[in-house]
Design a protein around this nucleic acid. Sequence first.
DNA 1: CCTGGGCTCCATCAATGGGTGGAGATGGGC
DNA 2: GCCCATCTCCACCCATTGATGGAGCCCAGG
Lengths: 216, 216
Amino acid sequence: MTKESIRVLIVEDHHVVRQGLVALLNVVDGLEVVGEAADGAEAITQFRKHLPDITLIDLRLPRMSGVEVIQRIRMETPNARLIVLTTYDGDEDIYRALQAGARAYLLKGMTSDELISTIRAVHAGKSHIPPAIAEKLAERMGTESLTPREFDVLEQIVNGKSNKEIGTELEISEATVKTHINSLLGKLGVTDRTQAATAAIQRGIVPLESLRKTKP
Amino acid sequence: MTKESIRVLIVEDHHVVRQGLVALLNVVDGLEVVGEAADGAEAITQFRKHLPDITLIDLRLPRMSGVEVIQRIRMETPNARLIVLTTYDGDEDIYRALQAGARAYLLKGMTSDELISTIRAVHAGKSHIPPAIAEKLAERMGTESLTPREFDVLEQIVNGKSNKEIGTELEISEATVKTHINSLLGKLGVTDRTQAATAAIQRGIVPLESLRKTKP
DNA sequence: CCTGGGCTCCATCAATGGGTGGAGATGGGC
DNA sequence: GCCCATCTCCACCCATTGATGGAGCCCAGG
């Protein structure tokens, strides 16, 4: 019985991790790694070229975020089956990736069994979200989301700016800054800017990587 | 010419990454992976058992930190050759790992060439620290380090506590809390608690993982 | 059209935070 | 023994922050 292999594309910038995935998957019967990509642009090229059955995609990629890649792929191939890979279970990432159309979510700490069974499940058309993650997702669903402006302000807070500085930066008055802060504190369920900052980092609302960039 | 292989132990909790490392190293002539460990305790057991020439060790491990493992191994085998692996170039981690006796430092985003040449270099007795990291290390060297108490206070700040709450928690007066904050702000080179919090996370002084734990 | 959400601004007030300049107690290292 | 770093506390002061309760503007969707 020569059943068709499930054709997998791997999108992951870390060379070691990519190798690990290839090594794990290629020894499995019925799976075949047809392509690898190390960044978003390459991911889209490879996707078009191979039209894989399953795409494993890291959320943190250089230049283009994983979420963006997912959106673009889904735009041209709405029934693409995408599985998100990530190191941390940053709540916001999960939310956005699943919103963008990912069918499943895996942490890099997973076992090979989890990896393989998830690939099979998603290929069979199921959505496969681990209970622990589903739970968090449910929590997050109930949470109001920040408006674009609130997000701008939060970003500045994380970067250690004072209200006055934020006002200057965003070209609004300090009073307006306070208004935004007041509502975002409520939405995040915290009571001051320091808690807002750590919550933002912890939940992945503001990525840690953006810190260094915006400093100078 | 049958020269001896360099015998390598891999300490890494993420299964996929571990597989990747094994896959990368085992195809290289002159390298041999003699053991794998997924946590600190296992690392020490495996080290004693195999006495490898080189130990690749992830800094973030469950239960016991990589730095701790390094210290313990160095305690019993002072000339052990340890290479630290990590995802982020969190300044504080580098500092502590190298202090603890690691000979080199590699990011998981490295190429296989970097990995292999670093292993060879360290085996040959060299210390091998990438220029970019050496630079940061030099910066950090000049930085005064926090006293234990200042660290306690910083931890509380990251967890979003007010000065009063910190005082209660640590059983000191609010005035003392302010004193500690004042000196730690100076040492971190920041001007307020929010900056202190993000700097602490960013530099790896207070690990992100500790946030969830201390909340409830 | 008109309703609602988001953005902007205002004033005011109490609480919190941070700067300054002390000062006593302890304990390890020279 | 003496010094130095650390930890502890105090008082005073001003800046910043967050809470409250408005208010007008714009624009997209019903």
